[in-house]
């Protein structure tokens, strides 16, 4: 007979880790299943709005979260991606790409990931010049011409980092003007190393072993641009595909009430994967705490 945990937490970003810390303190028999530790917080630059830290970097804050979680002695399965969440008899089945687990309750705290372009060449050239995390990989493109796809704050942030490193930067923006903060736009427009291509859409990624060009469509004309790096910054989508039975918003965020309950009793959700008002590290952490406290009440009421 397979072990049945009281609680499985899916994800170990700010929401999942905080949920885990609360679960440990409530002595709930818990398993954490996660692809990575720290989530998007670990990829953030400087953080100046997490109470108690006037200034801390994303990776450092993620390390502190992790230390706090590992202080307690419960099971953590890292490098596993959840593929299915389903009700089975009186409990829940959580399937990953490597194992399957059972629990009486589940907290979905799987966060968000980068939206993909959905064009030809994207799968083949992922990690071969095609990058979804500028903060992580930008320095690998020091002598290269690169393209940043997007026009919002994250695209501008990537451009500002790349301006210092790459040989030349193209911004490929779908709409007719950039959307990000003025301050960043000004800095970018001053640079002689950046071209902004508005009303432009990437339609194909080309290369042999690595990226060497992109095809873009601008005002109905198609042209090819030689680049060795492509940074995709077109927003985020919730990691909620595995939760097929949960009610979600149009954009895929899991609907929760103010107790972090979903439409299925026993399944809770917290943080950026939900439709919570505003996505912030401190909000995600608070939501994680709330979710576990709800789980505690739910388990107590069923004893």
């Amino acid at each position: 007979m397979k072990r049945i945990y009281d609680l499985i937490i899916i994800g170990a970003g700010p929401a999942g880790i905080t949920a885990a810390v609360y679960a440990a303190r409530k002595k709930i028999d818990t398993l954490v299943v996660t692809k990575d530790i720290g989530g998007q917080a670990a990829l953030s630059g400087d953080i100046q709005n997490y109470t108690g830290y006037q200034f801390i970097s994303g990776p450092e804050l993620a390390e502190k979260f992790e230390e706090h979680m590992r202080k307690f002695n419960f099971d953590i399965r890292e490098n596993e991606e959840v593929t299915k969440l389903a009700a089975k008899q009186n409990n829940f089945l959580v399937k990953t790409d490597k194992n399957s687990y059972r629990a009486k309750t589940v907290i979905v705290a799987s966060g968000k990931k980068s939206r993909e372009l959905g064009i030809s060449g994207e799968k083949e050239f992922k990690n071969k010049g095609l990058v979804y995390c500028a903060t992580c990989d930008a320095p690998l493109f020091s002598e290269d011409d690169v393209a940043v796809i997007g026009g919002g704050n994250s695209a501008l942030d990537a451009t500002l980092q790349l301006m210092k490193i790459a040989n030349y930067v193209y911004i490929i923006n779908r709409s007719n003007s950039l959307r990000g903060d003025e301050i960043m736009q000004e800095k970018i427009k001053e640079s002689k190393k950046v071209s902004i291509l508005n009303n432009s859409q990437v339609i194909e990624i080309l290369g042999d072993n690595f990226v060497n060009a992109i095809k873009i469509k601008k005002d109905k004309k198609v042209e090819t641009l030689a680049v060795q790096g492509i940074f995709v910054e077109i927003g985020l989508i919730p990691n909620s595909n595995f939760a097929v039975d949960l009610n979600k918003t149009k954009s895929g965020e899991i609907k929760v009430n103010n107790k972090n309950e979903t439409n299925i009793p026993g399944i809770f959700a917290a943080g950026d994967v939900t439709d919570v008002f505003e996505k912030q590290i401190i909000i995600a952490a608070g939501e994680g705490a709330k979710a576990t406290l709800s789980v505690f009440r739910y388990l107590s009421s069923r004893k």
Binding site: I37, G38, L43, P59, C136, D137, A138, P139
Partner: peptide, 9 residues
Amino acid sequence: LPTCPVCRR
């Protein structure tokens, strides 16, 4: 890379 959180981990 110094900028990469997974490298630190």
